[in-house]
């Protein structure tokens, strides 16, 4: 198949790659950009493990073709910590509150929560559960993921008790 050259700017770094049109954004990030932190759990848009931010919007990278993202900016889990590996406050909250076990779904939840916490509106319990119900986790029963995001929201003043 013929490949098309595209540029993806991922976590601030431009990646000039060539892809078949059918290559999903998730596969391109993993296989062409070498950023394997974005995981594939179902490849049909249900599990959310591949969640990334595309020009600031939260998307499923398995439901988006890389070629559509030509020239656009993408944020993935690899961009959350500082270059020396220091965890950001959200990651740190996941760590302290045991918000992960096997860690496979974790990048997707981190990116989903990153988006949630960057929205203008404050987060209450109902909105937290509503938004996080987007992604599947098999290990944690969601308890400590919710706790971690709640803690991160409180830390940045985004948390509000139920309206």
């Amino acid at each position: 198949m013929t490949k098309t050259p595209i540029r993806l700017t991922v976590n601030g770094v431009p990646h000039d790659i060539a892809v078949e049109p059918r290559r999903t954004l998730a596969d391109a990030l993993r296989d062409d950009c070498g950023l394997t932190g974005t995981h594939l759990g179902c490849e049909h848009g249900v599990c959310g493990a591949c969640t990334v931010l595309l020009d600031g919007e939260v998307v499923r990278a398995c439901l988006h073709f890389a070629i559509q993202a030509d020239g656009r900016t993408i944020r993935t889990v690899e961009g959350l910590a500082t270059p020396d590996g220091t965890l950001n406050p959200l990651q740190h909250a996941f760590w302290q509150h045991h918000g992960l076990q096997c860690g496979f779904c974790t990048p997707g939840f981190l990116m989903l929560a990153t988006w949630l916490l960057e929205q203008e509106e404050p987060v209450d319990e109902a909105r937290l559960r509503h938004v996080l119900s987007s992604n599947l986790c098999r290990c944690t029963g969601y308890q400590n993921i919710l706790t971690a995001v709640r803690a991160a929201a409180q830390a940045i003043g985004k948390w509000t008790e139920a309206a």
Binding site: T36, G37, L40, E78, L87, Q91, W95
Partner: peptide
């Protein structure tokens, strides 16, 4: 005690089998 396993997984630096397929 928070787990020593976690920081790498949280940075997206875990190594699952498919991550090693290059």
């Amino acid at each position: 005690l928070p787990r020593t396993e976690d920081p790498a997984l949280l940075r997206g630096e875990g190594a699952f089998t498919a991550d090693l397929a290059a």
